[in-house]
Structure formats: structure tokens, C-alpha cells
Design a protein around this nucleic acid. Structure first.
Lengths: 218, 218
DNA sequence: TAGATTGTTAATCGATTAACAATC
DNA sequence: TAGATTGTTAATCGATTAACAATC
């Protein structure tokens, strides 16, 4: 394995912007468009054009003056950088509506996620099917993770019990937890945790609405 | 209305951290705990204690040396600052699994959101019920928004068609769009847009997994 | 070629962190 | 009181922006 020289560290801000560029160029590509400029990316993502160029430079991508960035190439670069082409297996725990939405949504396949098995605690659900998968008893998830060396656990279960199941998954060997339960899950240092909480986005939306109302009333 | 003097502008970073503090202190409060220190908040949210104190100062909240912050008061301050106590009405368009999950989740009520009516394009769904609401024909949503002066539209429909429905909502007078369709929606300047995309979180998780693998292999 | 667009250096800006006095 | 914890000023750090030369 050759190293491409020690790159400067890429900031978390840059990493958070990359998926947004990626979403847009995926869309352009579907339309058959082959090149994109930093200015176009800027207008679409509300990131300064200079910042776009810096971000792309920082992950080792270069464009052509007067032409811009070749979309196919850029997709490859971003996919490689974020590791989207490595397909990772996951188990999902909690087959409620949110869990079902995640299992059914085909888009995650593009990001290298494969949901291998789903689990629930509800005896009424266990044994039924969803998207070609049998819903299994959550008490068997540890064994499954161990047997299949699953690296990712997706938590779409209610908050009570979520930490317990997380602990079990980690003991069984998962490396990462993608958490949608409305609770901050704790994991040991060597485990990756991504806590999502839909209410956070709502809080920010409400704040902006409030600010809007204050502005227009003054 | 008295003004509390012109406060310095609160940064977006601070605003993004507030919901995390809020989640944690809500949890503490349920346990009957009355005070919290900046250090405890720091350990829970991975924000430096100094930063926590600065954030709280910046929204006009003060604590007591040696005691910390009174949780009830702090909840009030954050709720007021973010505007969570103002209850706003919303319509939701797209009653798939994600839409259903959002309608059913009781937690949003704490953030001042009331989903008044739900809409879908599927004739099989129109007329059926969900959580005490009749699913209405999406072609009537504009009229509904106008008649009831609804300020928020929640988009949980597939990407194709999402922009059209958004345009209609805006023409009918909504002030804000909370978008879960996997597409960047465009709105005029005076309208608030919050684009959510679950895949973005996944991309970041994948990146961390990749980095973890690289570290441990070297 | 002329002009558009990239890549990069330098300047700015603002967020974070460190240090510590104030105080309950 | 002594000590823990807040609130704030000053220092640092790094991200963003501006400017512009390079170049296709």
C-alpha cells in the first residue's frame, strides 16, 4: 500500500460539508451532467466557492481551470474519502415506523450500508417479515452479531432499554452505533457513536421561526 | 415590551449545542435532580465546561458558584431562547413510515410542534386515519394551509414531487419547511428551510469507521 | 488569444480554550 | 472559613474569506 504523503488533517467542518456536495453531484450525474464548478456547488450548498475549492483540495481532488470538476471523478474521490464504497453490515433493533422507514429506504445502499438482520422485543412482531427479513427476537441479537461479525448497530427502539441493548451489542463486538433513540447513549472510547435526534433539528427550526417573528415585528 | 439590552449575537454553534444541554437536563429533571454544574454538562455532551458556561451566559442565564445551574430555570431559559414554548401548527405531507413515525412520536410536543393535519397522494391512504387524523388528499393542502394559517410544512414524501408541493405550501403562506425528502429543496429568502438527510449522518459514521480501520491497521 | 475558473497564500475573523478573579 | 464553581478577560487556535497568480 502506497501512501500519498501525509495529508494535512481534514477538519470536521469539511467532512460535514462533503455529503452535501455529494448529494448534489449525484443529482447532477443522474441528469447526465459531467462537470460542475465551485460556483455552482456554492450556490447549491450555501458554502463559499473558495471554501468549496479548499475542501476539495484538502481531500486530494483537483479540477481544471475554466472547466471545473469532473463529476464522476469527484464522486469517486468523495466516496473513497468517506469510505462509502466499503459495504458494512448492520443490525437494526426496533422495527417501529422509524426502523421500518430505514430498512425500506433504498438510498443507504449508495452509502455502503447493508442491513443484514432486524430485531424487536414485541412477540407480535417476532417471526413476521419486513423487506425479505424475518424479525428476530432482540434477545438473540448478541449471538447474531458475534456469529456474523457485524460492525454496526442501528438503534431505532424506544429510549428505555436502548442503553442495555447498546451494551450488549458492544460486548458482542460492534464497532459503531447509529442511534435514533431520543437519549444520549454512552459507549467505550474505542466504539464510534453517532447520536441522531430529530428533535434537535426541530429546535433549530423553532429558533429561526422565533427570530423571524421578532424581526418582522420590530 | 421591555428589551433586556442589546445582547451580543449568539453563534450558530451555540444554538446547535443548546438542544443537547436541553435533552440532558430534561432527563435529569425527570429523575428529580434540581441542579447541574457546567462540568456535568460537559462530560455528558463532550463540550468543554468553559464553553458550556459561555453558552449559557450568552443566552442570559446565570448560575450560582459552588451550586451550579438550577435545572427548572435553565429549562425555561433555553425554551424561551429557542422559542420552544410557542406552539406552532404544522401540516405533514407524505404518510409513509417516516411520516407516521413523526406523527406518532410524542416528544415533539415538548418542542412546541403540533401536527394539525396530514396529507398523502395515495388514494388507498386518503380517508384512512392515523393518530386521530384523517389522511387528506395532498391536492387540498394549499387550501388547508391558507384556511388555518399554518406556518410549518413537514415534508416526508419521496423526492420527486417534493419541490412542487413545497412551492405550493409557500404560495399558501407557510413560513418554514422541515424537509426529510432526500433532496435539497429551494425556497425564497423569506422562508425558513431545514433540510434533514439521514444519509448525511451515515456518511459521517462511515468515515469514522474507515478512519478507525486505518488507525488500527497501522 | 482572452477569459473563466482553479489552487493557494495571506489576512481576517470568530470560536474555543486557558487563566483566574469573584463569590456563594 | 475553605473550597468549589461560576463568569469573564485575555490568549490561542483554526476556520473562513479575500486576493490573485496560475492555467486550461
Amino acid at each position: 500500500m502506497k501512501r500519498k504523503g501525509s495529508r494535512r488533517k481534514v477538519s470536521v467542518q469539511t467532512i460535514q460539508r462533503l455529503p452535501r456536495y455529494y448529494q448534489y453531484i449525484s443529482y447532477l450525474r443522474k441528469q447526465g451532467i459531467r462537470f460542475v464548478s465551485s460556483l455552482k456547488l456554492s450556490l447549491q450548498t450555501y458554502v463559499e466557492a473558495t471554501q468549496v475549492r479548499k475542501d476539495l483540495t484538502s481531500i486530494g481532488h483537483t479540477g481544471k481551470p475554466k472547466v471545473g470538476y469532473e463529476i464522476d471523478q469527484l464522486m469517486n474521490t468523495i466516496e473513497d474519502f468517506l469510505g462509502l464504497r466499503t459495504i458494512e453490515d448492520a443490525v437494526l433493533i426496533g422495527v417501529g415506523h422509524l426502523g421500518t422507514a430505514i430498512v425500506q429506504y433504498g438510498g443507504f445502499a449508495n452509502y455502503g450500508l447493508r442491513i443484514k438482520a432486524v430485531f424487536d422485543a414485541d412477540p407480535m412482531k417476532i417471526g413476521t417479515h419486513i423487506q425479505g427479513r424475518v424479525i428476530q427476537d432482540v434477545s438473540h441479537v448478541g449471538q447474531y452479531v458475534r456469529d456474523h461479525k457485524i460492525p454496526i448497530g442501528i438503534m431505532t427502539l424506544p429510549a428505555p432499554g436502548a442503553q442495555e441493548v447498546t451494551d450488549m451489542l458492544i460486548k458482542s463486538g460492534v464497532n459503531a452505533i447509529w442511534n435514533f433513540a431520543p437519549i444520549n447513549l454512552f459507549v467505550p472510547e474505542h466504539v464510534i457513536i453517532k447520536n441522531e435526534n430529530l428533535a434537535f433539528g426541530l429546535a433549530i427550526l423553532k429558533y429561526r421561526l422565533k427570530s423571524l417573528a421578532e424581526r418582522s415585528s420590530s
